[in-house]
Write a protein that binds this DNA or RNA. Sequence first.
RNA 1: GGUCCUUUGGCCGAGUGGCUAGGCACAGCUCUGCAAAAGCUUCUACAGCGGUUCGAAUCCGCUAGGGACCUCCA
Length: 495
Amino acid sequence: MPLKIYNSFTRQKELFNPITPGHVGMYVCGPTVSGESHLGHARPYITFDIVYRYLTFKGNKVRYVRNITDAGHFEEEGREAEDKISKKAVLERLEPMELVQKYTNLFHWAMKQFNCTEPSIEPTATGHIIEQIGMIQKIINEGYAYEVNGSVYFDVKKYAASHDYGKLSGRVIDELLETTRELEGQEEKRDRADFALWKSAAPEHIMRWQSPWGEGFPGWHIECSAMATKYLGTTFDIHGGGMDLQFPHHESEIAQSTICNHAAPVKYWMHNNMITINGKKMGKSYNNVIKLTEMFSGNHPLLTQAFHPMTIRFFILQSHYRSTLDFSSEALVASEKAFKRLWEAYEALQKLEPANQGAATDTELDARILKWLDEFEEFTDDDFSTPKVLANMFEMAPVINSIKDGLIAPAAIATSTLQLMKEKFRVFLEDIFGLQPVSESNNNTLKAVMQLLIDIRKEAKSKKDFALSDKIRNQLNQAGVLIKDEKDGGMSWSL
RNA sequence: GGUCCUUUGGCCGAGUGGCUAGGCACAGCUCUGCAAAAGCUUCUACAGCGGUUCGAAUCCGCUAGGGACCUCCA
């Protein structure tokens, strides 16, 4: 089945055809490691992890490049441009690279918690200064950049005269020139819309590199262009990132790469929408962020409890990546319960034994299940409609539980249908959606202890010693272990 | 100020012309020593006004609210 992707560049869903059949090059804007990641950051990484996993599932060999921005983006708010990372490094009295390492480690840890696949290549900006300088030089040689006082700027006006600057972000260049806000320290630029490729470093600036234009540091946009070109070629398949990066970051990337490589860099642009909190984008400037460590620990005024990374992953999958997703503790609690129920049904499904005869006795139910299963791929092919796949899974949860509890005969569905169900649930939940069990019920020691307690409780129950039976159940409950009595007299437990 | 997007039941959230999305919460029932879990059932909404259409949450217009970008931002 063909995959369709919404291309932000053309503003429509398009059939996905890799440039080289069977191979996909994908670049995703990674974190700026000058601080801790927050909930909003989780979205693109989980979204594009699904994209990566699904493309792989479809038989592609995917090279997934996600950068680490460790050189810092300059800020233009003050008189002199400041490197964000070196600014904070001074405050925290750390070496810049020590700070960068600390937050890189923390980021990697968070990605692991979310069960995000590691990118094929994770290049750092500081490790590619030479490539960035080379690219800037080429742009100057092409006549689309100019040097002033040790800084280099991209000539947007000249570029726009022959190229469609603003197409990705839906901007008109003339408007842009007029509506760009009044900022200080811009007198060097020929035009307000121009952006920096290289910035001359002030004496107090810690992070600095030698360049043909003097000591300085790279502009914000050039690192992605340089690293994407190096590892994916002049034109590659997918570029992903948050919607807030469309302008100016991605628009500038297109301009730089187009001049440097004489080709449009990206075939499909994908942008995820924002996570909001009380309707407002979660972001540094709004001072409304919840850090991932706070999410996992529950240590934040807006959180009523801690949330497992898988709950957050599931929460994100329950909405379409191009819609805003409104955060609230209540919504997370709902996702936690929903995920638990779905996962328990999934585990029950894997334990179901097929009936002896092959054919279905309830052909109507059997047909419905086959349709639901078939739609897993159909929905995912339609621009990654993960919420619809999950909805179908929830449709099947009562069927699974009913078979398990003997309310529906196992023979109702065909043996082949059951096998297909097991397979499809596993592939989509684990391989593609990257979900994992929350509990530690895989711990063998714990399993053995629980088995003993369950045996004792069963014995007590059979002797109608409900006092003991309840005591075991209640005390375990207090310890966070839930005992469930099942229809057939069996017992199960979960954390 | 400019450009663009959005408004779905108590909450989150799919859905783009006709068919029950789904989840959570709430309520009732079944099962059960009790509870939980599970199953069944109930609640069935599309900001307002007008238009197009046999038919609109879905298309068009206006009004109102919310938001994003234009500045670092996932």
